[in-house]
């Protein structure tokens, strides 16, 4: 029951974070901060999916680390490329 409630709260959190990222991205006066916030939100959402939906919280550390690192590495690379151009 508690796990079901946690999943429901996380689902609502994911939806709210999605709306927040769309809102931040539309702010014309905060291009750099908007970029950072949108990418950070993406990392948080992907972490929630990996840990709680995929169930990697109980997986061997190597697989968990690979999955946990995937989106942060991609997001920071994209962020760096976007920042430099």
């Amino acid at each position: 029951m508690i796990k079901a409630l946690l999943r429901f709260i996380l689902w609502l959190l994911l939806l709210l974070l999605t709306l927040a990222s769309a809102s931040f991205a539309e702010q014309p006066d905060m291009r750099l901060y908007g970029l950072i916030i949108v990418l950070l939100i993406t990392v948080v959402k992907a972490t929630v999916i990996s840990e709680f939906f995929m169930g990697l919280a109980g997986a061997p550390w190597l697989w968990r680390a690979l999955m946990m690192a995937y989106v942060p590495v991609i997001a920071s690379t994209i962020g760096t490329i976007f920042f430099l151009t």
Binding site: V38, T42, A46, I78
Partner: peptide, 26 residues
């Protein structure tokens, strides 16, 4: 069932990167 679920979550994670990359970050 868990294998199929994991694949589906992966598809979701990929879209989580695609959405800001293509639609949000101008």
């Amino acid at each position: 069932l868990e294998s199929v679920a994991s694949y589906w979550h992966m598809v979701d994670v990929l879209w989580l990167v695609l959405f800001p990359l293509v639609y949000l970050l101008h």
